[in-house]
């Protein structure tokens, strides 16, 4: 008999990196910016967090460093898209490629080093898992109930109108991009500090891209992101259980499951958004568009 509760706790852990990254990207996208650099910011966070945790011996400082590193690495993207009006898709890809390279370059000395131990929080779960769960209502409240969130959504829905009302579109967007980077950094660091317990090149293995898909799945809402992250975590845990149970399917094929599940979910949700005109909140109106004030 499988202990369902234990399985649920595993799911919470497995979904945490994606949850952080997707919540960050949610805020960025609600401000009207499509940042495809999530994977790059996550891997930089994974390395910076691991290195800081290793050098200070304090995993929590590691997560703080990861947030800082994620926000910093997002700044070139912010400069390109907000001041130099570069294409957001291409700039995000550049951020991913640059981040992967940078992490591989500076990660060499960290290979083979073990992560410092973390004291677990309630229910034996990592504190960061609880922080992630706490971020869901916080971000929901920020987006839907706070004045700053209203401005952020205004900037994302119609940047020209927000500009006409006197809001600084660029400043809001740069802040949103930096926040998205910080969250992606923490998500990445959770993989290196709390899950794998070491640094390996390319260890985020597409988690950033899955996070991007989950934002679409969520219909751009915080509770939707949680549902998507849990769905993904569930598939991952199930897949690992099947591997452990010695099912007669090659390991390589089982490990495709999260990616295939992401595609299936993305297709299902896109179809719903396409065929029902009034499917609640859809993509922010100005998502992915350049903002250039002529005066």
């Amino acid at each position: 008999m499988i202990d369902l509760f234990a399985l649920f706790l595993m799911l919470l852990s497995a979904s945490t990196p994606i949850l952080f990254a997707a919540l960050g990207e949610l805020v960025t996208e609600r401000a009207g910016v499509l940042n495809l650099g999530v994977e790059g910011m996550m891997i930089v966070g994974a390395l910076a967090g691991f290195a800081a945790a290793h050098h200070t011996g304090n995993p929590f400082l590691g997560f703080a460093a990861a947030a800082l590193a994620g926000a910093l690495i997002a700044l070139p993207f912010a400069a390109l898209t907000q001041f130099l009006l570069a294409n957001q898709v291409a700039s995000g890809l550049a951020l991913t490629l640059f981040g992967l390279g940078l992490a591989a370059l500076f990660g060499k000395p960290m290979e083979g080093v073990k992560a410092p131990a973390m004291s677990p929080g309630p229910l034996g779960l990592n504190w960061i898992v609880w922080l992630g769960l706490l971020m869901v209502p916080t971000i929901w409240w920020f987006l839907n109930r706070s004045r700053a969130g209203l401005i952020l959504r205004g900037v994302g829905e119609n940047h020209d109108a927000a500009h006409a009302l006197g809001y600084d579109v660029r400043r809001v967007r740069i802040a949103a991009i930096a926040f998205g980077g910080a969250m992606a950094g923490v998500g990445g660091a959770f993989i290196s500090i709390a899950t794998v317990l070491q640094w390996t090149e390319g260890m985020t293995a597409g988690a950033g891209w899955i996070a991007l898909a989950i934002v679409v799945f969520s219909n751009w809402t915080a509770p939707g992101v949680l549902a998507g992250a849990w769905l993904f975590g569930g598939v991952t845990v199930l897949q690992l259980r099947l591997q452990a149970a010695g099912v007669r399917v090659p390991v390589q094929l089982l490990s495709m499951a999260p990616y295939l599940a992401t595609i299936i979910v993305l297709v299902a949700i896109s179809a719903r958004q396409k065929y029902s005109r009034r499917a609640g909140g859809t993509a922010p109106g100005s998502l992915g568009q350049d903002f250039h004030a002529l005066r």
């Binding site: 130099l84 570069a86 550049a94 640059f98 992967l100 390279g101």
Partner: peptide
């Protein structure tokens, strides 16, 4: 290190998109 090239290529795309302005 081998990853130097990857960093170079990423930087190149950054600069290119910037100068595109």
């Amino acid at each position: 290190p081998a990853a130097t090239v990857q960093v170079f290529q990423g930087m190149l795309l950054f600069f290119l998109l910037g100068f595109d302005l």
